[in-house]
């Protein structure tokens, strides 16, 4: 009853004091000003500037000489761009599913109160402390047929063993994926573990009383309860996918041929290798568009829906 009483009371009071609404909590608002400025000028302004100049034929330096949609036409007729998009989609889907599944499984295993949990947690999280450049180089060596895994297995006696993903255009993206998963799952595991620890012990007791199996409890009860944790993980993974660049540069430099190119690398090569800013801007605008297309419906469902509900 008390909660419903506050609702109607605050409502009218706010309508009376409407003019002072902007002045309420003034000091935090002032403190926010730099951030608001950054968001508007750097993020929004920079984005608009980039989109604007993607309609020009800017070379090494930005120039306002309009060419309409030429840059976009060239972009979409470029074989390398198509390959980049396909690669990103493949990497994105596999990395998203792989990271979530492996991350959650590891977290669930650690959550079973095993001995030496802290040791395992550190080991799994450790790769995250390495940059993508280091990760890429390490995995380039591990996957190198003469130095790495293939050679080791052959020395064990299995001489026909062949595992050379980085030199095979068909499966090179999986070579990148292995490195990406190795680097990224540790963090997701930790976030998941924190989520699991947040689950009330009573839930487990109730499930046990009802005679529900452990796996089933995880899938049917725990995972739905961990929705916010999954959303956080999803955002982190998705951001990592879109900006995939340094791993590729360190591990394969887009090779063999153009078979492991990704959009961010296309942008960098066009802008700085090819001295063609317009083309790079067009490509980065398309990247933004892709993110927006995925993000807006999701944000609407996630945040827009709640207000009405």
């Amino acid at each position: 009853m008390t909660t419903t009483d506050i609702g109607p009371n605050t409502g009218p009071r706010e309508t009376v004091r409407r003019p002072s609404r902007f002045l309420r909590n003034l000091s935090p608002k002032i403190a926010m000003l730099p951030l608001i400025f950054t968001a508007c000028v750097v993020f929004l302004g920079g984005t608009l500037w980039t989109v604007l100049y993607s309609f020009t034929k800017s070379g090494l330096l930005p120039r306002l000489s309009w060419v309409g949609l030429d840059q976009y036409e060239r972009l979409w007729s470029s074989r390398k761009w198509i390959v980049s998009i396909e690669n990103l989609a493949l990497y994105g889907i596999c990395s998203l599913i792989g990271t979530l599944v492996i991350g959650f499984t590891l977290a669930a295993l650690l959550d079973r109160k095993i001995r030496g949990e802290a040791v395992f947690r550190s080991i799994f999280l450790y790769p995250f402390a390495l940059s993508f450049i280091v990760t890429g180089l390490v995995w380039q060596w591990i996957l190198n047929p003469e130095l790495g895994l293939q050679n080791v297995v052959r020395e064990w006696g299995w001489t026909s063993f062949t595992f050379d993903p980085l030199n095979n255009p068909e499966i090179v993206m999986f070579g990148l994926l292995i490195a990406g998963l190795w680097q990224g799952t540790g963090l997701i595991m930790c976030i998941m573990l924190a989520g699991l620890r947040g689950i009330d012990e009573d839930i487990w007791k109730a499930a046990r009383v009802d005679g529900i199996g452990t796996v089933k409890t995880y899938i049917r009860v725990i995972i739905p309860m961990m929705r916010p944790v999954f959303v956080t993980s999803l955002v982190l993974i998705a951001a990592g996918i879109v900006k995939l660049y340094d791993l590729v540069v360190a591990q394969t430099s887009g090779g063999p041929g153009i078979s492991s190119e990704v959009p961010a690398k296309y942008v960098m090569t066009a802008m700085f290798g090819g001295q063609n800013l317009g083309q790079g801007f067009a490509a980065s605008s398309m990247m933004l568009l892709m993110v927006v297309i995925i993000l807006i419906p999701w944000a609407y469902l996630e945040f827009g829906g709640k207000k009405h509900g």
Binding site: S78, R79, K80, P169, G255, P256, G257, I258, S259, T269, A270, G273, G274, N276
Partner: peptide, 12 residues
């Protein structure tokens, strides 16, 4: 750059 991309694609 465009020629680099084309020829490396062909080569591989």
């Amino acid at each position: 750059t465009q020629l680099n991309d084309l020829l490396t694609e062909f080569w591989n």
